[in-house]
Amino acid sequence: MDCRETRETLLPYLLGELTPEEMMEIGQHLHSCKDCSLEKNSLAAHITKIAAAFNVVPDCLDKSFARRIVAQSREQQQRKRVVRWRWATAAAAAVVCLAVVASLLLHQSGPSPTATVQIAGLLADYRQYVDKPNPAQMASANAEVVSAWLSKELGFRVHAVDLSNRGITLLGGRRCELNGAPLAFLFYEKGETRITVYQIKGARFALEKLDTKLCNGHKLHVGRFGNTTLVACQSGDRTVVVIAELETEELIPIVQKHTAQGGHASAPKLKIYPVVRRS
Protein backbone atom coordinates (compact mmCIF):
# COMPACT_ATOMS: atom_id res chain seq x y z
CA MET A 1 0.00 0.00 0.00
CA ASP A 2 1.40 3.42 -0.97
CA CYS A 3 1.09 6.80 0.79
CA ARG A 4 -1.86 7.98 -1.34
CA GLU A 5 -3.90 4.85 -0.66
CA THR A 6 -3.02 4.97 3.02
CA ARG A 7 -4.11 8.60 3.42
CA GLU A 8 -7.41 7.89 1.66
CA THR A 9 -8.17 5.11 4.13
CA LEU A 10 -6.85 6.83 7.27
CA LEU A 11 -10.28 8.00 8.44
CA PRO A 12 -12.02 4.59 8.21
CA TYR A 13 -8.83 3.14 9.78
CA LEU A 14 -9.09 5.48 12.78
CA LEU A 15 -12.86 4.96 13.06
CA GLY A 16 -12.43 1.18 13.09
CA GLU A 17 -14.28 0.63 9.83
CA LEU A 18 -11.76 -1.60 8.09
CA THR A 19 -11.31 -5.36 8.07
CA PRO A 20 -8.51 -6.81 10.27
CA GLU A 21 -6.46 -7.48 7.11
CA GLU A 22 -6.80 -3.86 5.91
CA MET A 23 -5.98 -2.59 9.40
CA MET A 24 -2.84 -4.68 9.44
CA GLU A 25 -1.78 -3.49 5.98
CA ILE A 26 -2.18 0.18 6.92
CA GLY A 27 -0.51 -0.42 10.28
CA GLN A 28 2.51 -1.83 8.49
CA HIS A 29 2.72 1.18 6.17
CA LEU A 30 2.37 3.63 9.07
CA HIS A 31 5.14 1.83 10.91
CA SER A 32 7.51 2.40 8.01
CA CYS A 33 6.37 5.87 6.80
CA LYS A 34 7.01 8.85 9.07
CA ASP A 35 4.92 11.34 7.02
CA CYS A 36 1.85 9.14 6.99
CA SER A 37 2.30 8.41 10.66
CA LEU A 38 2.34 12.17 11.43
CA GLU A 39 -0.74 12.65 9.26
CA LYS A 40 -2.48 9.85 11.16
CA ASN A 41 -1.67 11.50 14.52
CA SER A 42 -2.95 14.87 13.30
CA LEU A 43 -6.22 13.38 11.97
CA ALA A 44 -6.68 11.38 15.19
CA ALA A 45 -6.33 14.59 17.24
CA HIS A 46 -8.99 16.31 15.13
CA ILE A 47 -11.34 13.33 15.42
CA THR A 48 -10.95 13.52 19.21
CA LYS A 49 -11.81 17.24 19.14
CA ILE A 50 -14.89 16.64 16.95
CA ALA A 51 -16.11 13.82 19.18
CA ALA A 52 -15.55 15.99 22.26
CA ALA A 53 -17.58 18.83 20.72
CA PHE A 54 -20.48 16.44 20.05
CA ASN A 55 -20.25 15.22 23.65
CA VAL A 56 -21.58 18.54 24.88
CA VAL A 57 -24.66 18.52 22.65
CA PRO A 58 -27.44 18.88 25.21
CA ASP A 59 -30.40 16.67 25.86
CA CYS A 60 -32.92 19.01 27.36
CA LEU A 61 -36.43 18.00 26.33
CA ASP A 62 -38.56 18.08 29.45
CA LYS A 63 -40.59 15.16 30.73
CA SER A 64 -43.87 16.63 29.50
CA PHE A 65 -42.69 16.47 25.87
CA ALA A 66 -44.04 12.93 25.29
CA ARG A 67 -47.44 13.89 26.78
CA ARG A 68 -47.65 16.94 24.52
CA ILE A 69 -46.85 14.85 21.46
CA VAL A 70 -49.49 12.25 22.36
CA ALA A 71 -52.10 14.98 22.91
CA GLN A 72 -51.25 16.57 19.55
CA SER A 73 -51.34 13.26 17.71
CA ARG A 74 -54.80 12.58 19.22
CA GLU A 75 -56.00 15.96 18.01
CA GLN A 76 -54.53 15.24 14.59
CA GLN A 77 -56.39 11.92 14.47
CA GLN A 78 -59.67 13.52 15.52
CA ARG A 79 -59.32 16.20 12.85
CA LYS A 80 -58.64 13.47 10.31
CA ARG A 81 -61.77 11.58 11.46
CA VAL A 82 -63.92 14.70 11.04
CA VAL A 83 -62.52 15.27 7.54
CA ARG A 84 -63.02 11.58 6.72
CA TRP A 85 -66.60 11.72 8.05
CA ARG A 86 -67.34 14.77 5.89
CA TRP A 87 -65.90 13.06 2.87
CA ALA A 88 -67.81 9.87 3.69
CA THR A 89 -71.07 11.83 3.91
CA ALA A 90 -70.38 13.53 0.59
CA ALA A 91 -69.33 10.21 -0.98
CA ALA A 92 -72.47 8.47 0.35
CA ALA A 93 -74.65 11.18 -1.18
CA ALA A 94 -72.79 10.81 -4.47
CA VAL A 95 -73.18 7.02 -4.37
CA VAL A 96 -76.95 7.32 -3.82
CA CYS A 97 -77.23 9.70 -6.77
CA LEU A 98 -75.10 7.41 -8.95
CA ALA A 99 -77.15 4.36 -7.90
CA VAL A 100 -80.37 6.09 -8.95
CA VAL A 101 -78.87 7.11 -12.29
CA ALA A 102 -77.37 3.63 -12.80
CA SER A 103 -80.67 1.85 -12.09
CA LEU A 104 -82.43 4.13 -14.56
CA LEU A 105 -79.79 3.40 -17.20
CA LEU A 106 -79.94 -0.35 -16.47
CA HIS A 107 -83.64 -0.45 -17.09
CA GLN A 108 -83.06 1.26 -20.39
CA SER A 109 -80.01 -0.55 -21.70
CA GLY A 110 -79.80 -4.07 -20.21
CA PRO A 111 -76.69 -5.51 -18.50
CA SER A 112 -74.24 -3.29 -16.66
CA PRO A 113 -71.37 -2.02 -18.78
CA THR A 114 -69.05 -1.66 -15.78
CA ALA A 115 -67.75 -5.25 -15.62
CA THR A 116 -64.85 -4.75 -18.02
CA VAL A 117 -63.89 -1.61 -16.15
CA GLN A 118 -63.65 -3.59 -12.96
CA ILE A 119 -61.08 -6.02 -14.37
CA ALA A 120 -59.26 -3.16 -16.06
CA GLY A 121 -59.34 -1.27 -12.75
CA LEU A 122 -57.75 -4.16 -10.87
CA LEU A 123 -55.09 -4.53 -13.54
CA ALA A 124 -54.41 -0.79 -13.42
CA ASP A 125 -54.07 -0.97 -9.62
CA TYR A 126 -51.70 -3.90 -9.98
CA ARG A 127 -49.55 -1.96 -12.49
CA GLN A 128 -49.59 1.15 -10.33
CA TYR A 129 -48.07 -0.65 -7.36
CA VAL A 130 -46.00 -3.37 -8.99
CA ASP A 131 -42.80 -1.32 -9.24
CA LYS A 132 -43.05 0.31 -5.84
CA PRO A 133 -40.68 -1.27 -3.28
CA ASN A 134 -43.44 -1.90 -0.75
CA PRO A 135 -46.74 -0.10 -1.25
CA ALA A 136 -48.31 -1.64 1.87
CA GLN A 137 -49.89 0.69 4.41
CA MET A 138 -49.42 -2.07 6.97
CA ALA A 139 -46.02 -3.47 6.09
CA SER A 140 -45.53 -6.78 7.84
CA ALA A 141 -44.60 -10.32 6.93
CA ASN A 142 -46.83 -11.58 9.73
CA ALA A 143 -50.09 -12.80 8.13
CA GLU A 144 -52.00 -12.52 11.42
CA VAL A 145 -50.95 -8.90 11.98
CA VAL A 146 -51.86 -7.92 8.39
CA SER A 147 -55.19 -9.82 8.56
CA ALA A 148 -56.10 -8.16 11.86
CA TRP A 149 -55.23 -4.67 10.61
CA LEU A 150 -57.11 -4.99 7.31
CA SER A 151 -60.14 -6.65 8.97
CA LYS A 152 -60.31 -3.77 11.44
CA GLU A 153 -59.86 -1.10 8.77
CA LEU A 154 -62.31 -2.58 6.26
CA GLY A 155 -64.97 -4.07 8.54
CA PHE A 156 -64.89 -7.60 7.13
CA ARG A 157 -62.60 -10.53 7.73
CA VAL A 158 -59.59 -10.34 5.45
CA HIS A 159 -57.25 -13.28 5.29
CA ALA A 160 -53.58 -12.83 4.60
CA VAL A 161 -51.84 -16.18 4.27
CA ASP A 162 -48.38 -17.40 5.21
CA LEU A 163 -46.99 -18.74 1.92
CA SER A 164 -43.37 -18.93 3.04
CA ASN A 165 -43.32 -22.70 2.43
CA ARG A 166 -43.83 -21.85 -1.26
CA GLY A 167 -41.00 -19.32 -1.22
CA ILE A 168 -43.46 -16.42 -1.21
CA THR A 169 -43.03 -13.56 1.23
CA LEU A 170 -45.86 -11.41 2.51
CA LEU A 171 -45.02 -7.68 2.25
CA GLY A 172 -48.18 -6.32 3.84
CA GLY A 173 -51.62 -4.96 3.12
CA ARG A 174 -53.40 -1.89 1.87
CA ARG A 175 -57.03 -0.85 2.25
CA CYS A 176 -59.07 0.49 -0.64
CA GLU A 177 -62.56 0.64 -2.07
CA LEU A 178 -64.06 -0.56 -5.33
CA ASN A 179 -67.39 0.86 -6.42
CA GLY A 180 -68.30 1.35 -2.77
CA ALA A 181 -67.22 -2.17 -1.72
CA PRO A 182 -64.32 -2.42 0.75
CA LEU A 183 -61.29 -3.87 -0.98
CA ALA A 184 -58.14 -5.31 0.58
CA PHE A 185 -54.82 -5.45 -1.24
CA LEU A 186 -52.30 -8.03 -0.09
CA PHE A 187 -48.81 -7.77 -1.50
CA TYR A 188 -46.54 -10.80 -1.74
CA GLU A 189 -43.23 -11.39 -3.43
CA LYS A 190 -41.80 -14.51 -5.00
CA GLY A 191 -38.16 -13.70 -5.67
CA GLU A 192 -38.45 -10.40 -7.50
CA THR A 193 -41.97 -11.04 -8.79
CA ARG A 194 -44.77 -9.13 -7.11
CA ILE A 195 -48.02 -10.99 -6.46
CA THR A 196 -51.05 -8.90 -5.62
CA VAL A 197 -54.08 -10.50 -4.00
CA TYR A 198 -57.37 -8.62 -3.79
CA GLN A 199 -60.20 -9.52 -1.44
CA ILE A 200 -63.46 -7.73 -2.09
CA LYS A 201 -66.44 -8.05 0.17
CA GLY A 202 -69.91 -8.56 -1.16
CA ALA A 203 -68.76 -8.12 -4.72
CA ARG A 204 -71.37 -8.71 -7.29
CA PHE A 205 -68.65 -8.96 -9.72
CA ALA A 206 -69.08 -9.90 -13.36
CA LEU A 207 -65.71 -11.30 -14.33
CA GLU A 208 -65.85 -10.44 -17.96
CA LYS A 209 -63.10 -11.32 -20.46
CA LEU A 210 -62.16 -14.35 -18.38
CA ASP A 211 -62.24 -18.08 -19.06
CA THR A 212 -63.64 -20.44 -16.47
CA LYS A 213 -61.82 -23.44 -15.10
CA LEU A 214 -62.91 -26.05 -12.55
CA CYS A 215 -60.17 -26.94 -10.08
CA ASN A 216 -60.62 -29.08 -6.92
CA GLY A 217 -64.27 -28.17 -6.79
CA HIS A 218 -63.55 -24.47 -7.16
CA LYS A 219 -64.74 -22.63 -10.21
CA LEU A 220 -61.94 -20.30 -11.16
CA HIS A 221 -61.85 -17.43 -13.61
CA VAL A 222 -58.63 -17.08 -15.51
CA GLY A 223 -57.36 -14.35 -17.82
CA ARG A 224 -54.06 -13.54 -19.47
CA PHE A 225 -53.23 -9.91 -20.29
CA GLY A 226 -49.82 -9.75 -21.95
CA ASN A 227 -47.36 -11.18 -19.41
CA THR A 228 -49.82 -10.69 -16.59
CA THR A 229 -52.08 -13.48 -15.35
CA LEU A 230 -55.26 -12.98 -13.37
CA VAL A 231 -57.00 -15.75 -11.46
CA ALA A 232 -60.19 -15.08 -9.54
CA CYS A 233 -62.59 -17.05 -7.41
CA GLN A 234 -65.90 -15.97 -5.95
CA SER A 235 -66.66 -17.73 -2.72
CA GLY A 236 -69.14 -16.96 0.03
CA ASP A 237 -69.37 -13.24 0.51
CA ARG A 238 -66.09 -12.37 -1.14
CA THR A 239 -64.16 -12.39 -4.37
CA VAL A 240 -60.48 -13.25 -4.32
CA VAL A 241 -58.38 -12.08 -7.27
CA VAL A 242 -54.68 -12.81 -7.73
CA ILE A 243 -52.59 -10.94 -10.30
CA ALA A 244 -48.93 -11.52 -11.10
CA GLU A 245 -46.51 -12.03 -13.93
CA LEU A 246 -46.54 -15.78 -13.28
CA GLU A 247 -48.13 -18.80 -14.91
CA THR A 248 -51.77 -19.64 -14.17
CA GLU A 249 -50.75 -22.92 -12.46
CA GLU A 250 -48.63 -20.96 -9.99
CA LEU A 251 -51.47 -18.61 -9.09
CA ILE A 252 -54.22 -21.21 -8.64
CA PRO A 253 -52.90 -22.53 -5.28
CA ILE A 254 -52.59 -18.95 -4.03
CA VAL A 255 -56.23 -18.22 -4.88
CA GLN A 256 -57.30 -21.47 -3.26
CA LYS A 257 -55.30 -20.74 -0.11
CA HIS A 258 -57.00 -17.36 0.26
CA THR A 259 -60.43 -18.80 -0.50
CA ALA A 260 -59.97 -21.70 1.92
CA GLN A 261 -58.91 -19.28 4.67
CA GLY A 262 -62.23 -17.52 4.29
CA GLY A 263 -64.06 -20.02 6.47
CA HIS A 264 -65.26 -22.16 3.57
CA ALA A 265 -62.37 -24.58 3.49
CA SER A 266 -64.42 -27.80 3.77
CA ALA A 267 -67.24 -27.49 1.27
CA PRO A 268 -66.94 -24.17 -0.44
CA LYS A 269 -70.26 -23.07 -1.72
CA LEU A 270 -69.30 -21.04 -4.71
CA LYS A 271 -71.44 -18.21 -5.84
CA ILE A 272 -70.59 -17.61 -9.45
CA TYR A 273 -72.15 -14.87 -11.45
CA PRO A 274 -72.70 -15.08 -15.20
CA VAL A 275 -69.43 -15.20 -17.04
CA VAL A 276 -68.78 -14.06 -20.55
CA ARG A 277 -66.17 -16.26 -22.18
CA ARG A 278 -63.31 -14.62 -23.95
CA SER A 279 -63.73 -15.15 -27.66
Binding site: C60, L61, Q72, S73, A136, A139, S140
Partner: peptide, 25 residues
Protein backbone atom coordinates in the same frame (compact mmCIF):
# COMPACT_ATOMS: atom_id res chain seq x y z
CA UNK B 1 -33.04 24.71 20.95
CA UNK B 2 -36.13 26.20 19.27
CA UNK B 3 -35.47 24.69 15.87
CA UNK B 4 -34.43 21.40 17.45
CA UNK B 5 -37.66 21.22 19.48
CA UNK B 6 -39.76 22.09 16.44
CA UNK B 7 -38.01 19.40 14.43
CA UNK B 8 -38.55 16.81 17.17
CA UNK B 9 -42.21 17.69 17.45
CA UNK B 10 -42.78 17.49 13.69
CA UNK B 11 -40.83 14.29 13.56
CA UNK B 12 -42.83 12.46 16.26
CA UNK B 13 -46.16 13.60 14.77
CA UNK B 14 -44.96 12.34 11.40
CA UNK B 15 -43.87 9.04 12.96
CA UNK B 16 -47.36 8.68 14.46
CA UNK B 17 -48.91 9.13 11.01
CA UNK B 18 -46.62 6.67 9.24
CA UNK B 19 -46.44 4.08 12.04
CA UNK B 20 -48.74 1.67 10.14
CA UNK B 21 -46.04 1.47 7.46
CA UNK B 22 -43.43 0.14 9.87
CA UNK B 23 -42.27 -3.34 8.90
CA UNK B 24 -41.41 -5.32 12.06
CA UNK B 25 -38.87 -7.35 10.09
Amino acid sequence: REDAEDLCQECFLHIYRVLPKYNPD
